[in-house]
Write a protein that binds this DNA or RNA. Structure first.
Length: 485
DNA sequence: AAAAAAC
């Protein structure tokens, strides 16, 4: 199967697939679709995250639904609310020409529209277990006409906290005429147990057995003490060519702390974790997806399944407790053939975890060199100069300032003009360059003196904009970056 | 032992 057009699909579904620009099926799609579009069967699909699982079950699910029957016919279970939203949205797009709609149902959201949707006989529901069980007990959620129940991220769904709710749903589901499709990255002991208990003669598809990770992800680790992590993180962000990234912490309170630290330092960040109210979680996700914020600090709530376009970096501020989670986290970047960095900050006593992850994933994690302050300085200047270049009205500005240019500036070299202008415009950046390094940053000793020496004998640099350097500012060494990240 | 997930 080379293209979707080879599949015997409903024409309006085909049209939606074309709208979405799906052309070549991914491996899991190529293997799962022929089975799931055939005679009804239970199913287990093992595939790494980010391999197009939603379409792999979404397409056959839509094929099995009768839109004229106003009953719930497809139910998808997800481990987080954000994932439920995302999957529901994608199914909506695929089902739009068929007249099939999907409703996300999860906690923290108002009951009104959920109850109404269920009452109207929405065809597909994508939700989180807790709220679904809630509707099940209250009677709003009826599983009698279900064609398929799908467990997305099944290994997580089967884990401790979810188990009861999951079993409540599995038990409430009539098994005549309906199937269970289970999707997971790994076949854990618990997944096997649930499969043995609830699935009947499931077809099994496993792709990329050896490769759990995207082939386009570049994995690095940085050795650092706990106390230096914040500095190292800032440097990594600063020297990145482009940064549209996720930063993972182990706990909610670490997320909160890191968020305020980075905000204090002038970075524009937002955060996502389970203690935030649902409204603000949704706002955060939207502004990250819209790239109004390019740094998202989060717990493992964001580690699974989230599909955000073109994430350049995933940074493990601390390594996850569960090694599985490492694979899920870094699966947020390097998606659909794009490059991406996965960087882990590792304190010496956690270094052994890197080898363990390498073994588990059969991949190499290189040791990265922590950028020096000089690297950071150079990159910032480069970014500023890039902004200089992008000034569109420059030609007119020159025209208007013609006389001034000639008389005042004609004798200076280009370098001096630009250098002085930079120093005037971004004094904090130059303060930072000259500052003695904080304790623990011995390796940066020789970072800046050369810059100063080389310039100090030059005409003009001794005076002017730079002569007030003795008034060292007490503000944090990082200048307001708005516009540079 | 953390995070997630109902009110």
């Amino acid at each position: 199967m080379k293209t979707f057009t080879e599949l015997p699909l409903d024409p309006s579904l085909m049209r939606a697939i074309a709208d979405l620009k799906y052309e070549t099926p991914t491996p899991i799609q190529a293997q799962a679709l022929p089975i799931l579009l055939g005679p009804p069967t239970d199913f287990i699909g093992l595939a790494a995250t980010g391999t197009g699982k939603t379409a792999a079950f979404g397409i056959p699910l839509l094929e099995r639904i009768d839109p004229s029957l106003r009953k719930l016919q497809g139910l998808v279970l997800c481990p987080t609310r954000e994932l439920a939203m995302q999957v529901s949205g994608q199914i909506n797009l695929m089902g739009k020409h068929m007249g099939i709609r999907s409703l996300p149902i999860y906690g923290g959201a108002e009951y009104g529209s959920q109850i109404r949707g269920l009452k109207e006989g929405i065809n597909v529901v994508v939700g989180t277990p807790g709220r679904l069980v809630d509707h099940l007990t209250k009677g709003g959620l009826k599983l009698g006409d279900l064609r398929a129940l799908i467990l997305d991220e099944a290994d997580e769904m089967i884990s401790m906290g979810f188990k009861e709710d999951l079993e409540a749903i599995l038990k409430a589901m009539p098994r005549a005429g309906s199937n269970i499709w289970l999707f997971s990255a790994t076949m854990s002991h618990d997944v096997r147990k649930v499969a043995d208990t609830y699935l009947r003669h499931p077809a099994l598809v496993q792709v990329n057995k050896k490769e759990m990770l995207s082939t386009t992800v570049d994995q690095l680790y940085y050795s650092t003490n706990e106390s230096n992590k914040l500095e190292v993180l800032c440097k990594l962000i600063d020297v990145a060519e482009d940064f549209y990234g996720l930063i993972f912490c182990q706990t909610k309170s670490m997320v909160t702390d890191l968020t305020s630290f980075l905000t204090e330092r002038g970075y524009k960040v937002d955060c996502l974790h389970g203690d935030k109210d649902q409204k603000s979680r949704e706002r955060t996700m939207q502004s990250y997806r819209d790239r109004r914020v390019s740094i998202l600090i989060c717990t493992d709530v964001a580690s699974r399944g989230l599909d955000v376009k073109d994430v350049t970096h995933v940074i493990n501020y601390s390594l996850p407790r569960e090694l599985d989670s490492y694979v899920h986290r870094i699966g947020r970047t390097a998606r659909s053939g794009k490059p991406g960095f996965a960087m882990s900050l590792v304190s010496p006593n956690h270094r052994y975890l890197i080898s363990r992850i390498e073994k588990m994933t059969k991949s190499r994690i290189r040791e990265g060199k922590i950028p020096t302050s000089k690297d950071v300085f150079k990159k910032k200047i480069k970014k500023i100069l890039a902004q200089f270049n992008s000034q569109k009205t420059f030609a007119r500005a020159i025209e208007m300032m013609e006389d001034t240019w000639k008389t005042e500036i004609a004798q200076m070299t280009k370098e001096e003009i630009i250098g002085r202008f930079l120093m005037m415009s971004f004094p904090a950046l130059f303060e930072e360059a000259k500052q003695t390094k904080p304790a623990g940053f011995g390796r940066d000793k020789e970072a800046f003196p050369r810059v100063q020496q080389r310039n100090s004998h030059r005409r003009g640099f001794r005076h002017g904009a730079h002569s007030n350097t003795h008034k060292r500012k007490k503000t944090p060494p990082y200048f307001d970056r708005s516009g540079f990240n």
